[in-house]
């Protein structure tokens, strides 16, 4: 039973991480590319870390919860890097599929 749960978590994690990176290559402009990694990768790594937590908790050496820290850290930092990247791209006036409203009143 535990085996199946672990396999499921690991496979889901790896699949989402892969799809996130696939989005990085497949999509056509910077702003759409930004979506793949920031979302798919957080859930992918999250699943992987939960799997690790479950695995090491069942090794007979007591609970292992410190994976939660990395998950928490990633969930807090991933949006911040995405926001900063989007801001930098707007600042540099990168080519976009849809024109941004007005690039002149940036507040950096």
């Amino acid at each position: 039973m535990l085996d199946y749960l672990l396999s499921f978590l690991i496979l889901t994690g790896a699949l989402f991480t892969f799809i996130g990176s696939l989005g990085l290559v497949r999509l056509r402009d910077f702003f759409t590319r930004l979506h793949g990694p920031t979302k798919a990768t957080t859930l992918g790594v999250g699943c992987m870390l939960i799997a690790s937590s479950v695995y090491f908790s069942n090794q007979g050496t007591g609970m292992s919860l410190h994976e939660v820290l990395v998950t928490l850290f990633l969930f807090i930092t991933a949006p911040i890097s995405a926001h900063l990247l989007a801001k930098a791209a707007l600042h540099l006036k990168l080519k976009s599929l849809t024109p941004p409203p007005d690039t002149d009143k940036a507040d950096y």
Binding site: L6, I10, G13, A14, T17, G20, S21, L24, F30, R33, L34, P37, T41, T42, G44, V45, M48, L49, A51, S52, Y55, E67, V70, L74, A78, S81, L85, A88, A89, L92, L94
Partner: peptide, 24 residues
């Protein structure tokens, strides 16, 4: 340049997943 930074960002997140899997 932002594309390359985004790629680096993705690269390190992927590396975390890879390291955790190696640990398991």
């Amino acid at each position: 340049a932002p594309d390359r930074i985004l790629a680096l960002d993705t690269l390190y997140v992927n590396t975390i997943a890879l390291l955790v899997l190696l640990g398991i």
